[in-house]
Design a protein around this nucleic acid. Structure first.
Lengths: 223, 223
DNA sequence: TGTACATCAGTGAACGCGCGTTCACTGATGTAC
DNA sequence: TGTACATCAGTGAACGCGCGTTCACTGATGTAC
């Protein structure tokens, strides 16, 4: 199991009034992150959008960093909760490897679609700190990997642990790339089908494909 | 073919003296990017490290943005040049699909290793502008895709264009993920072998693996 | 039901700091005669 | 080979702006008697 984001250091509200102010500040922050990106997230902009004031802000948080931690904590908690529910919403006991792979891929696709802009821009803004997104990614990958490895006897790949790791990285990579694309986005069904195909074939076929030395070698012109 | 980074808008040096100053500024910039990351790249820090002065800096560049463009242009040019030489260093005419895939993967692996920290941090620092890294990535992918698609008759996948795109995104995704990992990095040979296997099986086997509807469906608990 | 008082909450002007940029000035280089 | 002069190059103090943070002050809320 891996770590969690920095625990947020916030001065808890004691009246409903300030609780609502805090909520407005949080909502405004997410709003700004989604519409203007990380660089728009300044204390002044946040409190303006939240119809609050700098003073109120610093009554809750010791500084801007604490706001970031708090936002990260919230997103993290929600994402993890959804993920758990999705995982547990189904009994995996019966499924054979191909069906299991398909299920896992569907989970990843949907998780990726939903894991909002927030996680990513939060990580960008907070200089190399907790980075909730990477942690969430690792968490999710570990969960799915464990699930798949229970069926390692059905895999023909000679090193299931490495294969599962690489295979899942591949699927996540495809999803990331498709998120980055501006124009024609592939639809969910196609994506699930193709990633399932990719992963199933990689894990389950006999190991001969590329590692047989039939390969071509190159000058390494890359330093 | 895709675009290039913003053309750099620089005031050309007229004496060897100022040419050398420019070189020192560029070297200092890359040095800072590599050691301190994008946030350390301030005009004052750069000229200090370059043993120059703010005035000299603004004699070359109209502003900081122009420095970024200039750096991007340099990195881009070098990366592209290396890529071209690598591509052309071998005659692909004879190779069959598996060998071709292996060669392509090897190129990608090495390109990924070499495409220095610079491209990535440059894109991070310049807010959503030219982003040399993404452009380079697209350029490379298009080149390899074209190469592979010449052998589409040897593919059993029913939609080679989509398959090549997804397959290459998968390989790049694996490489990205492996770059991100802190600890135990897989070695180059293993990476080449596995990615080759992944891609070959995906492209060349008969299309039945996952798209046969044997799948499991889920509640979409992701918003 | 009032009244006094402590604590919580909210406000926005003001401060300090870092960073990009400007500018008045000095020194170096090259060219014309 | 000199000398005058234009242009290029270099310097660093100073300015403006945005942003995080502080602080003195006013108002709201809840509790004790």
């Amino acid at each position: 199991m891996v770590g969690q984001p920095e625990p947020a250091n916030i001065n808890p509200p004691r009246q409903r009034r300030s609780q609502r102010t805090l909520e407005r500040i949080v909502a405004a922050s997410f709003d700004i992150l989604a519409t203007e990106g990380p660089s728009g997230l300044t204390v002044h902009r946040v409190v303006e959008k939240a119809h609050s004031s700098v003073g109120s802000f610093y009554a809750r948080f010791e500084g801007k960093e604490d706001l970031l931690d708090y936002l990260g904590e919230r997103v993290w908690a929600e994402a993890l909760d959804r993920w758990q529910r999705a995982l547990e919403s189904r009994d995996w006991g019966e499924a054979k490897l191909p069906a299991l792979v398909r299920g896992a891929v569907a989970l990843l696709v949907d998780a990726d679609r939903s894991r909002s802009v927030y996680l990513k821009s939060l990580d960008q803004v907070s200089g190399r700190r907790s980075n909730a997104y990477d942690l969430f990614r690792v968490q999710v990958l570990e969960g799915v990997a464990a699930l798949l490895l229970e069926r390692s006897s059905e895999m023909t790949h000679s090193a299931p642990t490495v294969a599962v790791r690489i295979g899942l990285e591949a699927v996540m990579g495809v999803l990331d790339a498709e998120n980055r694309v501006a124009g024609d986005r592939l639809d969910r069904e196609l994506l699930v089908d193709e990633c399932t195909s990719l992963l199933t074939r990689y894990l389950a076929e006999t190991s001969s494909g590329g590692a047989d030395g039939s390969g071509v070698e190159f000058f390494d012109v890359w330093s």
